[in-house]
């Protein structure tokens, strides 16, 4: 029994030493928390702000600096603005870009379109790039974020910034993969419409929804179509008692098709 206890004590001491060393012998560094998916507000953004966003993405979420740094794991990007023009004429170039901006965008989405000599994957003779597609799962940049990084790259390499700030990101999905230039198809179902514009975030219908705005469960009983139309297009014109101004977005009129507005009004007026 004595031997047994000695062994137990010895084991506990050993484990205690390892745990103690790990806790107190070395500095405890708090690892960065998982990155948050950032919501972009591009509408109010200046070009400088957009470039700064690109820089943040470049140094942060994009994880670009892991390789594009002074250690030379990946090509230096300090002059990429000038170099890109030459790349387009390079016989090894396989992409479809016509301008520097397009080239840069393409290099982020399809890195193997042009591989700088000496930076290819081992054994592929510089035809395949080790860089991931920044829009894919791991980094997961949206279209707008890619544009911001391109703007930053152009700015930081001293080239002219040709990127335009993408607009209409209001209804941006997390993956942002929709093509923003294409108009949305009109929606005929009022419930889908309400879901698209997330009305239920503030308004309650049938016991479900938020309490920031008035309950709409029986709104048709007390308000007519004209009032409702005005309430959607110009929310601050009349404020129901007990609610605050400036809570509802004012751009519903821009975001909605006319037909959709009518469908929505029909629906709301019918809630009695």
């Amino acid at each position: 029994m004595r031997q047994f206890l000695t062994v137990v004590v010895f084991t506990l001491l050993t484990i205690g030493f390892f745990a103690g060393y790990s806790n107190f012998g070395i500095p405890q560094i708090e690892p960065a928390p998982p990155p948050k998916e950032e919501k972009l507000d591009l509408g109010s953004m200046t070009m400088d702000g957009f470039i700064a966003l690109g820089e943040r993405l470049f140094n942060g979420k994009g994880t670009c600096t892991l390789c594009h740094n002074a250690l030379g794991r990946a090509p230096e990007l300090a002059t990429v603005g000038e170099v890109a023009a030459g790349r387009l004429k390079d016989p090894r170039y396989e992409g479809e870009a016509g301008t520097v901006e397009e080239y840069l965008t393409e290099s982020l989405i399809d890195p193997s379109a042009f591989v700088v000599i000496g930076f290819g994957k081992k054994g592929t003779n510089d035809t395949e790039s080790p860089m991931p597609n920044v829009a894919s799962g791991g980094i997961g940049m949206s279209v707008a974020e890619v544009a911001a990084v391109v703007a930053y790259l152009q700015d930081s390499s001293g080239a002219e910034v040709t990127v335009e700030i993408p607009q209409d990101i209001g209804a941006q999905e997390d993956d942002g993969e929709e093509d923003e230039s294409e108009p949305r198809e009109a929606i005929g179902d009022p419930k889908e419409l309400m879901a698209l514009f997330t009305c239920d975030a503030c308004h309650m219908i049938g016991g479900e929804g938020g309490e920031v705005g008035p309950d709409l469960t029986q709104i048709g009983a007390s308000r007519d179509r004209d009032y409702l139309r005005r309430a959607i297009l110009d929310p601050n014109a009349d404020i129901a008692e007990g609610f605050e101004e400036d809570m509802m977005p004012e751009d519903m009129g821009e975001a909605m098709y006319v037909a959709e507005l009518e469908i929505l009004l029909d629906y709301l007026a019918g809630l009695k």
Partner: peptide, 18 residues
């Protein structure tokens, strides 16, 4: 620490490597 490759100094972006 290792310097960044570029920095914004006097309102311009300068390439510290060059």
């Amino acid at each position: 620490p290792a310097p960044p490759s570029t920095a914004k100094i006097y309102g311009k972006r300068v390439n510290l490597l060059k």
